[in-house]
C-alpha cells in the first residue's frame, strides 16, 4: 500500500507553539456521512447540532437527517444501515481535522466565524458554518477545545486564517 499525504503536512510541521491557542492537525480517521430518516441500531446522537462520543465513535448530527460519523473503521456503519432506507458514504479523505485549543481559541475562531461562541455554543455542540470563506464543521469538544472538519482543499486556507489570528497571542 502506498503512503497518505495530508494537505496540512507542511503547515502543521512549521507551526509555532502558542499555548493560548494551540493548533494541531489531527491524525486520519474513517469518516462517514449517514443520511436516513430510519432508526438504526447505532449509538448515535439524537439532538440536532450536538455530538456525542461513544466507544471511540463520534457522531455529529448536522441536520434533521444527517450525521457525520468519525470512527476508527467505517465498516460497522455500513453494516448497520444495510437493509434500511439510508445513505452511507465514505468521506474519509474528503476533509481533514484541525484542533484549536487554549484560553484564546474561541477568540481566534471569532476572528473569522460569526457564530456566538459563548454560552450559546456549549461543549458538545457542533454545526456546519463558515470560517472566512471556507465551510467547516465546528465542534466544541471542551470549554476551550474545538474540533474543525475542513474540506481538504480548504484546509491550508483555514489553517492560515487561524495562524494569522492567533499570532497576537504568541
Amino acid at each position: 500500500m502506498v503512503d497518505r499525504r495530508s494537505p496540512l503536512a507542511g503547515l502543521a510541521g512549521a507551526a509555532p507553539s502558542i499555548p493560548a491557542a494551540r493548533l494541531v492537525a489531527l491524525p486520519p480517521c474513517a469518516r462517514v456521512v449517514l443520511r436516513t430518516a430510519a432508526v438504526l441500531d447505532l449509538p448515535i446522537v439524537q439532538d440536532i447540532n450536538r455530538a456525542v462520543v461513544a466507544g471511540g465513535v463520534a457522531s455529529l448530527r448536522l441536520g434533521p437527517d444527517e450525521w457525520l460519523i468519525l470512527a476508527p473503521d467505517a465498516g460497522p456503519i455500513f453494516a448497520a444501515a444495510s437493509g434500511h432506507a439510508a445513505a452511507v458514504v465514505d468521506v474519509s479523505h474528503r476533509q481533514v481535522a484541525i484542533e484549536i485549543a487554549g484560553p484564546r481559541a474561541a477568540e481566534v475562531l471569532n476572528g473569522h466565524c460569526a457564530l456566538d461562541l459563548g454560552a450559546a455554543f456549549p461543549p458538545g455542540m457542533c454545526t456546519r458554518t463558515l470560517l472566512g470563506k471556507a465551510e467547516i464543521v465546528l465542534w466544541r469538544t471542551g470549554a476551550d477545545e474545538f474540533h474543525l472538519e475542513v474540506g481538504r482543499s480548504f484546509a491550508p486556507y483555514v489553517w492560515q486564517c487561524l495562524e494569522e489570528g492567533r499570532r497576537e497571542h504568541a
Binding site: 494537505p7 481538504r152 482543499s153 492560515q160 494569522e164
Partner: peptide, 15 residues
C-alpha cells in the same frame, strides 16, 4: 482585515 494576499480567497489545490 486578513482577507488580502494568500487569504483573500481560498486557493484550492488538487491532490
Amino acid at each position: 482585515g486578513a482577507s488580502r494576499g494568500d487569504l483573500f480567497d481560498p486557493e484550492r489545490r488538487a491532490p
